[in-house]
Design a binder for these strands. Structure first.
Lengths: 200, 200
DNA sequence: TAGGCCATGTAACCGGTTACATGATTAG
DNA sequence: CTAATCATGTAACCGGTTACATGGCCTA
């Protein structure tokens, strides 16, 4: 099955995905200037979390590259008693690249859940684990909804797109939560409560 | 805690995530034996798609390793007029590892959407692109719901967990679709139709 | 005859994460 | 005195994807 000699190297891996950290940064900076630290927060905790879960290790290099490519400009702020901040702003070139990126037809949404994997295998787990996971899952869902409520309350900005997305997210998550509360007992019931014999 | 020996010896990147292709394979094989090809289908098109989007390039090596580790066994099937199939079955050791993996508290659900990124930036796009993306998005959502309906219809198996997850997924996606249909015009309205006024 | 489905597998590559380095300020 | 928050950044690493190789059968 092997035996093929290394022939020509005409491999050009050009992924050109819509969603990567570079595009995320451009999209966020399109709405307002921000530091790398703020971008990280927005993309993990706040309502830009629908896109990419970026970490510092990917954001800072992305911002540097964007700067090199002339897509963003930097303004350094020094305040006594605070670490210095590098505030990035998008340029026309950056806006153009963002626009270009958004021309691609979006891929399918991706919903991934370790919790559902656990739920699916509920029958081989013990009651206590399931209950703990369910409680935690509930809290997470509530926190996310609360976050979106906060976003929508303090929405002084004029961007209809941002508001539409936040409302959509809140609605979907709220309905998921409602369903979850109503049906969690069915999931719990899948595991017989044999705690007495499960002494470890 | 003492801080003296900490800094140097945590150089071993032990990710130990619940969700990776290895665990996905074990979870699928926990329900029934399958080939790599089938696992790929289930994890991308069918209702195991809530977990990891795995490709052949990750599934086949994962199965080989699982075999080496004694977590699965293989039975090769030769049928005239068809490619040979390698049917994998989980072993006790495999079940044990799955159980062990599921002990970890699940991480937060992750919902990622290129479509929502587009929606958020709707105002800088042109009408035609948005409408095209919305129509496609609708189709995708409908297809996913239909898939889950199929799964639930042909559910001869006794696994309550599988059914619970499929029902949950269907419900959430259906509600998202309903909301989407009701509010898509608001999104469309964000983009002035300054292009082809005559079109419609 | 083209393309899609079945079916397995490898290797190059890459887009990220994790750990680490650094350090000031504020809240408990 | 500890932990969290603010703040930037690098390098090792890795869990995947993409492209490639192979080939037979079936349908339009």
């Amino acid at each position: 099955m092997h035996s093929l000699a290394i022939s020509r190297r005409k491999r050009q891996y050009r992924t050109r995905q819509l969603m990567n950290v570079r595009t995320l940064c451009l999209a966020i900076l399109h709405f307002s200037e921000a530091t790398g630290y703020e971008i990280k927060k927005m993309s993990t905790e706040e309502h830009f979390s629908f896109f990419v879960d970026a970490s510092f290790g990917s954001i800072y290099p992305a911002l540097s590259r964007l700067q090199d490519d002339g897509c963003v400009t930097v303004r350094e702020e020094f305040e006594s008693g605070k670490p210095s901040r590098k505030v990035y702003s998008i340029t026309d070139k950056g806006r153009q690249e963002l626009h270009e990126s958004l021309r691609v037809l979006p891929r399918r949404d991706s919903f991934k859940s370790e919790f559902l994997l656990m739920a699916m295998c509920a029958e081989i787990l013990d009651r206590e684990m399931i209950v703990r996971a369910i409680d935690r899952h509930l809290k997470d869902m509530e926190a996310e909804i609360e976050m979106l409520n906060q976003v929508l309350e303090h929405c002084d900005d004029t961007s209809g797109g941002k508001i539409w997305v936040a409302k959509f997210g809140r609605q979907v998550k709220q309905q998921a939560l409602d369903y979850f509360i109503k049906h969690r007992h069915e999931l719990e019931a899948l595991v017989p409560d044999n705690q007495a014999q499960a002494a470890e």
